[in-house]
């Protein structure tokens, strides 16, 4: 089947455990343009309401009246107006390639878990590994610790980079790690050294995940933690310090839109599916 439509508009909605992200994209031949991107923390709100609000805002910002394919990912399986759903690793792999065409693996570090995905140049997932159920490698854990320390999320990365004597934190259990942090505070360890210690612990887990896969020179970081420059630096240092590494350490790449990687992947795959299926109808209309 083939569609007669050459210019398409698609949306990608990534429902994470901490935030909902939506993008609207336009496709014309080889040209892929992001028209709008919106994200919103879920906090204690109804997820359906957050999805509606984020999607409406993205559509309004994009200034489009119709969307050919609404692709969802993450926990977005039940979004009623979706055209199709893609699994998280599929969308993050594709989104990572969109943001950095040199990426050969993606580390998706979100609020509740992290996963490492190796992909080929087309975005086809070759292998993947996920963290176990423990929360100690998650954004939620980091957010909790920051709250105990009286630090805003935006400050975490910068403070971590100022550390001069990082304190080791349990890398296995969030409960033990939180106990460690309480002890450190009472021992007068600086906030920067505590945060860097946590980053190093998380970086250790993430590097172990990545090393269980085969990939090339560039690892792209997606998800909410990709914007944490302290964690990125810890990851680079962790790789650089590996004695068993035969070649140079991989480059850890990020992007200001890293958090939208999943949504971008869903929108791009949505466009692919629209053409593959030979669809010719608008899936979502502003007037409907």
């Amino acid at each position: 089947m083939s569609t007669t439509i050459t210019t398409t508009t698609t949306a990608g909605i990534d429902v994470g455990s901490g935030a909902v992200k939506a993008v609207v994209m336009s496709f014309d031949g080889d040209s892929e343009t992001v028209l709008a991107k919106v994200s919103s923390r879920i906090r204690k709100r109804d997820i359906g309401d957050v999805v509606d609000q984020v999607f409406a805002q993205a559509v309004a910002e994009a200034g489009v009246q119709g969307i050919h394919y609404v692709g969802t990912t993450g926990e977005g399986e039940d979004i009623p107006f979706a055209t199709g759903h893609f699994y998280g690793m599929t969308t993050h792999a594709r989104g990572a390639l969109f943001l950095n065409p040199k990426a050969t693996a993606v580390l998706d570090a979100g609020a509740l878990h992290a996963r490492a995905v190796a992909m080929d140049a087309r975005g086809k997932v070759l292998n993947y590994k996920m963290t176990s159920q423990c929360a100690s490698g998650s954004g939620q854990f980091l957010e909790n610790i920051a709250r105990y320390l009286g630090v805003s999320q935006a400050e975490i990365g910068g403070l971590s980079l100022q550390a001069d004597d990082p304190e080791k934190v349990s890398g296995i259990c969030a409960v033990l790690a939180e106990t460690d942090v309480i002890n450190m505070v009472s021992r007068g360890i600086s906030t920067a050294n505590i945060l860097r210690g946590i980053h190093e612990s998380m970086a250790g887990r993430f590097v172990r995940l990545l090393r269980s896969l085969e990939f090339g020179d560039v690892v792209f970081m997606s998800g909410g933690l990709a914007g944490d420059e302290g964690l990125v630096k810890s990851l680079e240092d962790e790789f650089a310090g590996l004695k068993s590494l035969t070649g140079p350490p991989p480059k850890i790449a990020t992007h200001e839109d890293s958090i939208f990687a999943g949504a971008l992947g869903a929108a791009i795959w949505g466009n692919f599916r629209f053409h593959k299926l030979g669809l010719d109808e608008i899936a979502w209309e502003a007037s409907a």
């Binding site: 759903h85 893609f86 692919f272 599916r273």
Partner: peptide, 9 residues
């Protein structure tokens, strides 16, 4: 999920 994606894509 991955099975469905692999077939679709």
């Amino acid at each position: 999920g991955t099975f469905a994606d692999s077939i679709k894509l």
